[in-house]
Design a binder for these strands. Structure first.
Lengths: 236, 236
DNA sequence: ATTGGTATTGTTGTATGCAATATCGCATGC
DNA sequence: GCATGCGATATTGCATACAACAATACCAAT
């Protein structure tokens, strides 16, 4: 018993600071408090979190690996601005894997977890009915979280990680190319999806998920964005 | 440990050194020159590549992010040894995304690229007919590369990255749980797959890919491995 | 012989210093 | 007025120093 207690204590005490900085930055990017292109200076971030640049660097590299941040040598880290092509790839990938996730989750999810998701939906709807940019951000965040919660019930940690990345990148894409900011129909679609899952109708749930992703993408305006620097233009 | 390719290092003069160290370690893990559980001490790796621990640390963190290395706080980095459950998740995920990759690649691939893949197949077969552990390693590496090359023709960089991770993790899994080391039927299956792609028969290609993945997984012995330390046993 | 405790050694986590590189401001020339 | 060149400034890349922690060796006691 001494062994176990000790291990638990250590686990709780030692929270990884780089990890928590990563999470904070990640949330800020997904919430659009940090827009695409924003500079993330090591010293500045370090001062905010009261850590050295070493730790900040580590956090930035994680974000770079999942594509939320672009690191340019000797220039620093910037919040990514995905091209329309990258945006398409994000949604193509989601179309490929989310139906499988929904199928797995439909089989495994419990009644209690369905209830939890229903609570989440009412939260989404509350944000939907509020006005203002803060509510808009909360709405987008909650909408992504719905997809992540489903992934968490797929029983597959790898798929879960992939979805983390895809949902985060989707948020960036919507920030850049979204027309209405978030599609109006999104939430009734979430509800229909959940209903199908509750009925254990996996085929229907997959179908709804596919159309849902299509609708999210249809709300984007993926024409090449105008203001491109010469440098970026030549980089392609 | 003879991991270093001096020529490669010289090529990368100004390029990102951490990246090239990551690639070298990655190859060594995939090639099983570094077996699951091996300790990767920062100072040791740094001495081999003639860089400071800072750079090594960055490389190790990348590998940890893609699941090839496990970093334990204050203890260091070790080559992962995936559990049977993780192994199943790797193959479940491959079953989910590789058919889509093959479908996309079948549409987009050119005649010349098909030829290139055919050359790759003859290489695989050569390794298959050789004896000895070096040939075995080369065979496994080439087999994974076949899947990666197809992913590279999907036209989707995100899927490509996901496949990089999945193929690397598969190699680890096969190293741990493989019976014959590499399935005998694998290469004729590769050839059949390529034939279907050449005929632009995407449905057939998807089907072949699914069965191919099943066959790889069927060659594994995923019963719980015996020798578990008490510490690991309590960690679950 | 085994357990428990303590000193020693080695390794990792983080901060910081220095060199290399990019960025910005300013002056100069056209 | 605008562009160009140059020096000052700021920021990153990397190595290293030191602190914190874990692993090991060693010794004493039962």
């Amino acid at each position: 018993m001494n062994l176990i207690d000790k291990n638990l204590m250590l686990d709780q005490n030692q929270e990884d600071r780089a990890q928590s900085i990563r999470d904070s930055l990640r949330d800020a990017i997904i919430d659009r408090r940090l827009g695409p292109g924003s500079k993330l200076a090591e010293a500045e971030v370090g001062a905010l979190f009261d850590v050295s640049r070493t730790v900040v660097r580590s956090a930035l590299q994680m974000l770079a690996y999942e594509g939320l941040v672009r690191i340019e040598r000797n220039r620093g880290a910037f919040v990514s601005n995905p091209t329309p092509e990258e945006a398409r790839q994000v949604f193509d990938t989601r179309r490929l894997i989310e139906p499988g996730i929904v199928r797995a989750a439909t089989v495994r999810i419990s009644k209690a977890d369905i209830e939890d998701l229903r609570d989440h939906l009412t939260l989404e709807e509350r944000f939907m009915n509020e006005r203002g940019p803060a509510a808009r951000r909360a709405e987008i965040k909650a909408s992504g979280d719905f997809h992540l919660k489903i992934a968490r019930h797929s029983g597959n940690a790898i798929l879960e990680k992939f979805m983390d990345e895809l949902v985060a990148r989707s948020s960036l894409v919507i920030a850049l190319y979204g027309r209405t900011g978030v599609s109006r129909c999104g939430h009734s679609e979430h509800r229909d999806l959940l209903d199908a899952m509750e009925r254990c109708d996996a085929d229907r749930a997959c179908d709804l998920m596919l159309h849902h992703i299509d609708h999210i993408e249809a709300d984007l305006d993926l024409r090449e964005v105008a203001a491109m620097t010469l440098k970026d233009a030549l980089a392609t």
